[in-house]
């Protein structure tokens, strides 16, 4: 009889813990803070599991109040799940379950910052370079191409804005303008089997857009697309928002505007960003949120070609409520 009572107390306590998990999840869903832990693609699983936890919790509590009809209460799997051991072990085991519930309710939500980013490594450019980097490269300092090139590219953008069709024809022919040699058309890339058709289609879509607003929704795709195929986008204006990240070997006018991306949950977050160059760069601390507007160009860093944003305007920005970006699929 004593054993039976103990058994029903375990069912009762477990029921309450299950309800605790369910309430924590529901609370996070309602307050929206769940987005700081779980990516949107996983949300159906979270909704489903919250409902199941509520159901299981209620069933457990009903089970504990069921009469002493032992056959009905015990699942007949050979007494598989009894909680045994001395009292302190049992308290310890239940504490393990109470821990995440208590921490979840009580501790403030934290968003990941650049110290985590540094540890995880930040991807900016050169996504396809697969060789190990080895020793630090002292030729990594970037020859800033200000002045002429910068002006030239701006004027090219202006030229495009005034007469898009004519400009595109020019670029398409390639030979018409000596400076256009380095510009490729999307079609050429499309032929290249190395280049994935998803990003080729995306490049096609954005090729005619002269201002790239790199917002949350397209951040990751845009980073990959620019890495793979900067040709058609050189000289275009772009705007990007993110937190400031710096690496050893950066010059004073360089920083990376980065975002954490999340696939399933925060544990798999990785960091991607765009290198920018601006005279005001040094005014911003690591982790500050900034909005940068400028012109996309290609540069070389640590021996890799990569896109860089030559910034015309760099200003502080508010950190969004949900600072993460997610893959588009």
């Amino acid at each position: 009889m004593e054993e039976r009572k103990d058994y029903s107390f375990h069912a009762y306590l477990r029921g309450i813990i299950l309800l605790g998990f369910a309430l924590l999840k529901l609370g996070m869903i309602i307050s929206g803070s769940i987005q700081l832990y779980i990516a949107p693609t996983m949300m159906p699983f979270i909704y489903g599991s919250t409902a199941i936890l509520f159901l299981l919790g209620v069933i457990q509590i009903l089970r504990s109040t069921a009469g002493d009809d032992t056959d009905e209460a015990a699942c007949d799997c050979g007494a598989d799940h009894g909680m045994s051991g001395p009292r302190y072990v049992q308290i310890g085991i239940y504490s393990i379950f109470l821990l995440p519930i208590a921490l979840g309710f009580v501790l403030p939500d934290q968003t990941l910052n650049s110290s985590v980013a540094e540890n995880r490594g930040v991807q900016f450019g050169a996504a396809e370079a697969s060789e190990p980097q080895g020793e630090p490269d002292d030729t990594g300092v970037i020859q800033a191409e200000e002045g002429e090139n910068f002006g030239e590219d701006t004027s090219r953008a202006e030229e495009y804005m005034e007469d898009p069709d004519g400009y595109m024809e020019n670029v398409g022919e390639g030979s018409a303008d000596a400076g256009a040699e380095e510009h490729y058309t999307v079609e050429e890339y499309y032929e290249d089997e190395q280049f994935d058709s998803y990003y080729a289609e995306m490049a096609e879509e954005y090729e005619d857009v002269d201002f790239l607003d790199i917002d949350e929704d397209i951040f990751l795709d845009m980073m990959t697309m620019l890495d793979q195929n900067i040709g058609p986008f050189e000289g275009k204006e772009a705007e990007i928002k993110g937190f400031v990240y710096r690496e050893e070997g950066f010059t004073e006018d360089q920083l990376v505007v980065a975002r954490f991306s999340m696939t399933c949950c925060i544990a798999d977050a990785s960091v991607q960003g765009l290198l920018i160059e601006s005279e005001e760069a040094e005014q911003f601390e690591v982790d500050d949120w900034v909005q940068a507007t400028g012109v996309i160009e290609e540069t070389e860093y640590n021996g890799h070609d990569m896109p860089v944003l030559k910034v015309t305007n760099l200003e502080p920005a508010e950190e969004p409520d949900v600072p993460y970006v997610y893959p588009s699929f």
């Binding site: 998990f21 599991s49 921490l103 403030p108």
Partner: peptide
């Protein structure tokens, strides 16, 4: 109740893994 930033990061990742794993454990 609060902790140092490092431990808050631990807490965030911990909760992330637990919340994410519960549906699959179920």
């Amino acid at each position: 109740f609060s902790l140092s930033p490092e431990w808050l990061t631990v807490n965030t990742i911990f909760l992330g893994i637990v919340i994410e794993a519960i549906p699959f454990l179920l």
